[in-house]
């Protein structure tokens, strides 16, 4: 191992080595860039948790995914499709700086449908009003990724500046969040 040690004497006077950087309290990638918000949802009979996780970046970019407590993780997920019947979200294309051509989304717009082992299906909702920027084609064949915070994003949605406050206030903050059906 010693032969791999960094030679820290190359730094000029007055410039500290990069290794002197305090890594003690360094937050994770998600914690550095995003604020967690939740959209609470239960099945029609009120017994199943279908909560969504929204990772909100200060530049209005949102990663939409499932909360850890979503019932689908307990059941086991066997499929995801962006083809929601009348429209295939994975065909979404945006052009240029202003992301022209992205599908317009409302909070209750379906982004994708996931299928569980028992055959039941769950809709992944947009949760915010915005424009669809990107779907996550890496999820297909790697369905276990869905449970990883960040990498498990189902879609990237960009909110208009004027809709940000409204979007945030319609969601539940991390501090106030209690998973649905946790009684």
């Amino acid at each position: 191992m010693e032969k791999f040690y960094l030679n820290e004497n190359e730094y000029p006077e007055g410039v500290s080595s990069i290794t002197k950087f305090d890594t003690g309290e360094y937050p994770s990638v998600v914690d550095r860039y995003f604020t967690r918000f939740y959209h609470k949802k239960t099945s029609e009979d009120g017994n199943e948790n279908e909560d969504h996780l929204i990772l909100y970046h200060s530049n209005r970019v949102c990663l939409i995914g499932l909360a850890q407590s979503h019932i689908a993780f307990k059941k086991g997920i066997v499929g995801i499709t962006y083809n929601i019947g009348n429209c295939d979200r994975s065909l979404n294309q945006v052009k240029g700086k202003h992301k022209k051509g992205g599908m317009n989304l409302q909070p209750l717009t379906t982004l994708a449908i996931i299928t569980c082992k028992d055959g039941s299906e769950y809709k992944v909702l947009s949760c915010v009003t915005g424009k669809l920027i990107e779907t996550n084609d890496r999820l297909k064949g790697n369905l276990n990724k869905l449970s990883i915070e960040g990498s498990g994003y189902v879609a990237i949605v960009l909110i208009k500046p004027e809709n940000c406050e409204k979007a945030k206030s319609s969601l539940v903050s991390e501090k106030d969040y209690i998973p649905s059906c946790s009684f």
Binding site: F4, L63, V94, K97, I133, L158
Partner: peptide
């Protein structure tokens, strides 16, 4: 990258990495 996505076009860009060296820290 997501942190610049609000002001840059969404696209996949190829970039060359010419070399990497890794070191451990005592």
């Amino acid at each position: 990258p997501l942190r610049v996505l609000h002001r840059r076009t969404l696209m996949q860009r190829p970039r060359m990495i010419y070399g990497v060296k890794a070191f451990a820290v005592k």
